[in-house]
Simulated assay, not measured.
Amino acid sequence: MQELPTRNRSALLCAGQRWANVAAVLAIGGFSAATIVGRHANGAERSWLVLDIVVGIVASGLILTLARRPVPGALALAVLAAVSPAATPASTSGTLTVAQRLPLRTAVLIAAAGTVGHLVQGLWRPIGNLPFLWFAVLDVAIHAAFLGWGQWTQARQQVLDSLRERAVRAETEQGRRVAEARSLERTRMAREMHDVLAHRLSLLATYAGALEYRPDSSPEKLAQAAGVIRVGVHQALDELREVINVLRDEDVYEGRPQPTFQDLEALVAESRQAGTTIAYDDRVDDSTTLPPATGRTAYRVVQEGLTNARKHAAGRPVRLTVAGQPGDGLRIELTNPAANGASVTPGSGTGLVGLTERVQLAGGSLDHGKRPDGGFRLEASLPWPS
Rank of each mutant, 00 (worst) to 15 (best):
G329T: 01
A309T: 05
R300A: 14
R331A: 13
G327A: 10
G324L: 09
A313Q: 08
G329K: 09
V322I: 14
A314L: 13
D286I: 12
E333M: 04
R310S: 10
V302M: 08
L330T: 02
P291F: 15
N308V: 09
A323H: 00
R316Y: 00
D286L: 13
R316K: 11
R300N: 06
K311F: 09
A298L: 05
G315N: 06
L306W: 05
H312F: 13
T321D: 06
G324Y: 01
T289W: 07
K311D: 12
N308G: 08
T294V: 15
V318W: 00
A309P: 02
V322E: 01
P317V: 04
D285K: 12
L290D: 07
D285P: 02
R316N: 02
G327W: 09
R300Y: 05
T321G: 04
V318E: 01
R310I: 12
P317R: 00
K311N: 14
T307C: 07
V322M: 04
T321H: 05
E304G: 01
R331V: 12
V301H: 02
D285T: 14
A314Q: 08
A309C: 01
L306F: 05
L320V: 10
A313M: 04
P326H: 04
A293L: 14
T297M: 07
P317C: 02
G327R: 08
I332C: 08
H312C: 12
E333I: 04
E304H: 08
P317G: 06
T289N: 09
G324D: 01
R316S: 08
L290W: 11
R331M: 10
P326L: 09
G295A: 06
G295N: 05
R331H: 08
E333A: 12
H312L: 13
T294G: 10
E304K: 01
P291W: 15
Y299L: 00
V318F: 00
E333S: 12
D286T: 13
E304C: 14
T288D: 12
